[in-house]
């Protein structure tokens, strides 16, 4: 894999930016070129949030992902807004607990995972984003399992270290399901 451009999108509060951050740190661990670009401004407060992550062996050009290789859609508006932008042969990962809509495209792989329900049933409410990250890891292998765990550790500030285990569990559930 030389280039991977991922667009994460959903509601503010679903951990969209954090998910991108874990991925970015995992890439940092592997000494890749990378960029992490959040949407910012009033739309963050209760509205939609998105986050572009680019990983490459070469210097990153535009850090804004317009045509993602992978789209992670954690709500319906995000899916509808971005699904046509995904490159042919790309992947769309959908939290099917939240989004029921079918994707009509034949030229992309659609991965539906019941992320919110899986998280909740395992006592990991609010960790659907990490379940999805596990799925993304499984689908793309964007880094080694070791790097992903190191990336997660680096993304969690020492004050919140208690959250590490739950996030690990959620990622593992995403890989299994």
């Amino acid at each position: 894999m030389s280039d991977l451009n991922v667009l994460f999108a959903g509601f503010g509060g679903q951990g969209i930016l954090f998910t991108g951050k874990v991925m970015a740190y995992a890439a940092l661990v592997e000494d890749k070129e990378l960029s992490w670009l959040p949407s910012y401004g009033p739309e963050m407060r209760g509205g939609t949030a998105s986050c572009s992550v680019c990983i490459s062996d070469k210097a990153i050009g535009s850090p804004l992902v317009v045509n993602p290789d992978v789209l992670v859609a954690m709500n319906l508006p995000s899916l509808e807004k971005y699904m046509d932008d995904v490159v042919p042969g790309g992947i769309i990962i959908v939290d099917s607990s939240i989004v029921q809509r079918e994707v009509e495209r034949e030229d992309v792989k659609v991965v539906r995972i019941d992320a919110s329900r899986i998280a909740e049933e395992n006592g990991l409410k609010g960790a659907a984003n990490m379940v999805i990250l596990g799925k993304l890891f499984k689908e793309t292998g964007f880094c080694s399992a070791e790097s992903l765990d190191l990336g997660l550790q680096k993304s969690i500030p020492p004050k919140k270290a208690a959250l590490l285990e739950n996030n690990r569990k959620a990622i593992a559930l995403g890989i299994e399901n």
């Binding site: 951050k21 970015a24 940092l28 070129e33 990378l34 960029s35 992490w36 670009l37 959040p38 910012y40 990153i60 850090p63 804004l64």
Partner: peptide, 10 residues
């Protein structure tokens, strides 16, 4: 600019 200010890179 806002993009360079808000983005993270190594």
């Amino acid at each position: 600019d806002g993009m360079l200010g808000q983005m993270m890179e190594p």
